[in-house]
Structures are given as C-alpha cells and as structure tokens.
Design a protein around this nucleic acid. Structure first.
Length: 263
DNA sequence: CCGGATGTTCACCT
DNA sequence: GAGGTGAACATCCG
C-alpha cells in the first residue's frame, strides 16, 4: 500500500473533489471489507442524505467527516493494493505491487453522489477496509508531524528492534515497510538495534531524516521511489558505499540494510 | 510453478 | 507484559 505518502495523496484527491457533494447511494457489496461491526445497511443509513465536509488523515487511515463533524465519520484503509478513485481520477499514478487496471470486480466500496459522480475504493487483494466512525485514538502520532521529543518518547527504553517500533501504528502512524527501510538507511541506523539504545544524537538524526524522507519521496512520487528500494532492484548494492545489501526479516517484514554504514 | 510483495488482525508461542 | 511467528486475504511479477 500505500504508506503515509500515498494516503496523503488520496486525502488531497478527496478534499479537492469529494467535499460538498450529496451522497445518494452507498454500495458495499463485500461484507469482508467492512470492519469493526460496520454493516452495509449501517453505512447507507449513516451516509445517505449527508455530504463530506472534510478529508483528514492519520497515518494510513483516511477519514471523511460528514456535515461539519455533526454526522458520523467514514474511515478508509487501503491495505497494500487499495486505490481511491473519485469520478475517474485516481489518487496516485502507480502503486508498486498493484496492476494499473481497475477491474469493476475489485470495487469494494462505492459512494454515489447526487450529481452522478462517485467515490470508490478499488482493491484487488481486499486488504483494505471501510469503517464507520473509526477509532482514531488507537493510532499513534502521525509520522509526518511527530516532534523530536515525541519520537524520543515513543522509542522509550524498548528492546524491540528499532524498525518494529517505528512501524508500530499505535505509536507512530504512517510508516510502512519501504519508507521505514529508506529512513533508517538514510539515517545510518541498523534496523535491528533495540529502539531504546539510540543516543540523543542518533534520535535527532533519525527525526531529521524521517521528516526529510517523507517530504522528498512525496515529491518524487511515492514510497517506492526511495534510493534503497531502487538499488535493491538493481544489483542490491548500497548506493552510498557500494556494499552488498543485507536482507533480513525484522518485525515480521523483509528488511534491506547496509551492513557497513547502518550501525 | 513458486515465492514474495507498500498491511492489519488474530491466535498462539516464548 | 513484551515480542515473535504464522495464517488469512487475492493478485501480480520475476
């Protein structure tokens, strides 16, 4: 999926194109896609006759508010392959592991507007989901807005691998597998280091690279445009010092890092 | 043909 | 309590 960068692009698409349009229909044909006791009937009941008034994002969760916050909010998650489509515009040009096709069979959720347009979630692998009134308190601080002090606090004195802690959505929301590897590569930090073992200087370096990486890959066009990810596909050597990249499983995810300069 | 892939959740271990 | 593992979801790509 979509990590924070892609979801932010979905948020902008929704903000620019979906607000203020009356909802007349809700089509949620796949019960599996509705999470946390959300039902198709409940969604229709809650959304028909209202309009979206704000598009917000925390981490990888997109939240559409209704009627100025007076109505229920709608939470959209995109898993690894979910795409937001409004009318015929998609929120991103490309996702790394998703075909460019949008087969109608993959439309897991559709909102019909009074003007004839629609907002859809198209998701081949069904890893995303739709929630009415999502519990946003379960998510940690957004990775695009975290302060150095907040970052230090969430690393705490944990003995969990640094990478696992950064990807813990309940503590820091928005970083996925690719972005996390890229940030740690740029910061020169070993993903397997215990999160609580960083010095003050290392934590500040991590924070600086976190902010810069999110901004830079956002401009380049996505989570898959990182230097490390590109290098991995082309020979697997560190773009900084030419060392053969190391491949491990950390925090349950395939992890690439440079054994020479990430310490 | 097989393995793995931008994610989340849950059951089950240590 | 803290972490780790593997399964499940369904499709595409190398």
């Amino acid at each position: 999926m979509p990590e924070l960068i892609e979801i932010e692009s979905y948020r902008r698409l929704a903000q620019d194109n979906a607000l203020g349009r009356g909802v007349v229909a809700v089509d949620a044909p796949d019960p599996w896609y509705l999470k946390e006791a959300t039902s198709a009937a409940g969604l229709g009941e809650a959304l028909r006759g209202r309009c979206f008034t704000a598009a917000r994002r925390t981490g990888k969760l997109l939240v559409l508010d209704t009627d100025g916050g007076a109505g229920p909010s709608l939470g959209l998650r995109f898993g690894m392959t979910g795409v937001l489509v409004v009318d015929d515009d998609r929120g991103v040009d490309a996702l790394e592991y998703s075909s460019s096709r949008l087969l109608p069979a993959w439309n897991r959720f559709t909102i019909g507007f009074a003007d004839g347009g629609h907002l859809r979630v198209n998701d081949p692998r069904r890893l995303g989901g739709v929630v009415l009134a999502p519990d946003e308190a379960r998510l940690g601080i957004d990775a695009g807005a975290v302060t150095p002090a907040q970052l230090a606090r969430l690393l705490g004195d944990s003995r969990a691998p640094l990478k696992a802690r950064l990807m813990d959505q309940g503590r820091l929301a928005g970083l996925g597998n690719l972005l996390t590897d890229e940030v740690l590569w740029r910061a020169g930090l070993d993903p397997a280091r215990p999160a609580g073992s960083l010095t003050g200087a290392e934590r500040r370096r991590l924070h600086r690279h976190l902010a810069a990486t999110v901004a830079e890959l956002g401009e380049r066009g996505g989570s898959h445009t990182g230097d490390l990810h590109v290098a991995r596909a082309r020979g697997g050597r560190c773009p900084r010092d030419g060392t053969v990249l190391e491949r491990r499983t950390i925090g349950g995810r395939t992890t690439y890092s440079c054994p020479r300069h990430q310490r």
